[in-house]
């Protein structure tokens, strides 16, 4: 009789173990999906802010038409790529195209702000200061959303790779997820060569 109780208790412990393991992996996976959604939200917010920025700057940066047009074009490309990736999230090429377009937009914006430094009237413009702050915070939020996604993926991958989850994770339907790659292209990530 006592043997039966011990067996039942051991069975109950094993079931509880699997339940807790499954729940933990589910919570980590949901965190990853939440983080991915957050990136999308911030990228869309960036797309919405840029037209206002260009309009405010246009009357001051009269001779920088090329740069302003480049910003608008990069924004439109990124917006289109983002919509496509949202419609086809399983398409790796669409995601790669979105990442490339967002990277190009970031570097175009960087050139725009570098140029804007040469226009003190534009910098002092109240609207411009607020827009610039909104864009800075949006850029930061995109970066932090990507960081949060990578941290959540790292936590999930670590949990899946650790013992004893590594034995059962596949059977329970969990697999490792790839980290997000940097937005900049290989060429942009190379350090600039300085010659005097």
């Amino acid at each position: 009789m006592s043997g039966l109780w011990i067996t039942l208790a051991a069975l109950a412990l094993i079931i509880l173990f699997f339940i807790s393991l499954y729940n933990r992996l589910v919570a980590l996976k949901n965190k990853v999906e939440n983080a991915f959604g957050q990136i999308d939200v911030q990228l869309k917010r960036r797309h919405d802010l840029i037209p206002n920025l260009v309009e405010t700057a246009r009357s001051y940066m009269l001779h920088e038409r090329t740069t302003l047009e480049a910003v608008i074009n990069a924004r439109n490309t990124a917006q289109t790529a983002g919509q496509l990736a949202t419609q086809r999230p399983e398409d790796a090429q669409a995601l790669a195209a979105m990442a490339q377009a967002e990277g190009a937009l970031s570097s175009t914006l960087g050139r725009f702000f570098a140029l804007a430094e040469a226009y003190p009237d534009l910098k002092a413009n109240q609207n411009m200061m607020q827009l610039s702050e909104e864009l800075t915070t949006t850029e930061n939020k995109v970066a932090f959303a990507r960081q949060a996604f990578n941290d959540a993926v790292m936590a999930l991958n670590t949990a899946i790779q650790s013992f004893p989850a590594v034995v059962f994770a596949g059977a329970l339907g969990f697999s490792q997820i790839a980290l997000l790659q940097p937005l900049e292209s290989e060429a942009e990530r190379k350090a600039p060569v300085v010659r005097f």
Partner: peptide
């Protein structure tokens, strides 16, 4: 105050950190 840059900046940094912390 949305018209005060420093106040807006602090509120923005809190939102940025909330995004980082999910």
């Amino acid at each position: 105050d949305p018209l005060s840059l420093v106040e807006r900046q602090f509120a923005n940094t809190l939102e940025e950190m909330a995004v980082a912390a999910l």
